[in-house]
């Protein structure tokens, strides 16, 4: 069961429709062929798609001399709403954030939840990257270091120190990244299981001494790997057109009850998600939450989310959308 969800997250893909920006096309281009459709892994990143896009789109559309002169480090991506896409976000997050943001804008048609996922329209520009919006040079090397930093930040949140990440050998750290580039599940989880908590649910009532997180901030060596033993779930909340929200998120409340997604959402956004009179949390005004392209029930425990639906960087990304 545990590895089933990890496998599903790893295998999850989203459709992208990548179109070359007309301003990037010289007059000699073949404009009949300007969009490339790709089914991209959720846990991958846009810069990792560049070789494929170059071969199947740019090299066909552009004349040979222009194609040869392309500098991939100048490439950048935008949504049709002129939002520069963050190349250091996992593709699955870009996709979920795009469609939940669209759901909040009035003039938008959204397919019902049951229909197939629509392709996300992306415009590719081949020059003049807006450095102020991209923040980091979009090279594969800086992508790797950004990924490693995200892993460490998640590690710090979970265990109060980055010892699990820094305890990995250099070859193992590189192995995590290589497994993403090569999309190799087994290679990734051979190492990933040393850092990420075990998603197996704890046996209820068996814990006479529950593995409570270490309350002081010093990060004493925790040896348990239980999903509910982490100090905090690395979790980010994405609201349409608003800054990302990140806060401490303990899997277990002070009363020893497992925190649910509904608890978290109603505490963070009481105007969008209300805490019901019963255990059930309810969404008001049609607000809904998406994790890895799915809408988990609001009673899903965040500890379980952290172990089962986190991305390869260890983060759970929750995108909030609004249903008309």
């Amino acid at each position: 069961m545990s590895s089933l969800f990890r496998q599903m997250v790893w295998d999850g893909t989203v459709p992208l429709a990548i179109k070359l920006a007309p301003s990037s096309l010289p007059s000699s281009s073949d404009r009949m062929l300007d969009t490339y459709f790709i089914q991209a892994p959720r846990i991958s990143y846009l810069p990792l798609l560049i070789p494929e896009i170059r071969q199947n789109l740019c090299d066909l559309v552009l004349d040979e001399a222009t194609a040869a002169a392309l500098r991939e480090e100048d490439w950048w991506f935008e949504t049709e709403k002129d939002n520069v896409l963050k190349w250091h976000w996992p593709i699955g997050l870009l996709y979920d954030a795009h469609f939940t943001t669209m759901s909040a804008s009035e003039s938008c048609f959204l397919p019902s939840a049951s229909s197939l996922s629509p392709p996300m329209p992306i415009t590719l520009y081949l020059s003049n990257p807006p450095a102020d919006k991209l923040l980091l040079t979009p090279s594969v090397e800086s992508l790797k270091s950004s990924f490693m930093s995200q892993c460490k930040e998640a590690d710090f949140l979970r265990w109060g120190s980055t010892r699990r990440m820094t305890g990995l050998r250099k070859t193992e750290q590189d192995g995590l990244w290589d497994a993403i580039r090569e999309h190799n599940y087994d290679n990734f989880w051979k190492i990933g299981s040393k850092i990420l908590p075990n998603p197996n649910p704890p046996s209820p009532l068996l814990n006479s001494s529950p593995p409570t997180p270490n309350p002081d901030g010093t990060g004493a060596a925790t040896t348990t790997n239980d999903a509910y033993a982490v100090r905090s779930i690395p979790l980010r909340l994405f609201l349409p057109n608003a800054p990302v929200i990140q806060d401490l998120c303990s899997p277990v409340t002070q009363n020893g009850v497992h925190t649910t997604l509904g608890d978290l959402l109603s505490a963070s956004f009481p105007l969008l998600f209300s805490k019901g009179a019963n255990i059930q949390n309810t969404s008001i005004s049609g607000a809904y939450a998406v994790v890895q392209g799915m809408e988990p029930p609001l009673e899903t425990e965040v500890g379980w989310l952290g172990a089962s639906l986190a991305g390869a960087d260890g983060w759970v990304n929750v995108c909030v959308g609004l249903r008309a």
């Binding site: 930093s149 460490k152 800054p243 806060d247």
Partner: peptide
Amino acid sequence: AFSPTPDDTVANLYKC
């Protein structure tokens, strides 16, 4: 311990 991404808000980093 770690480098935050430049687009993390100070509020989020402070809270955590």
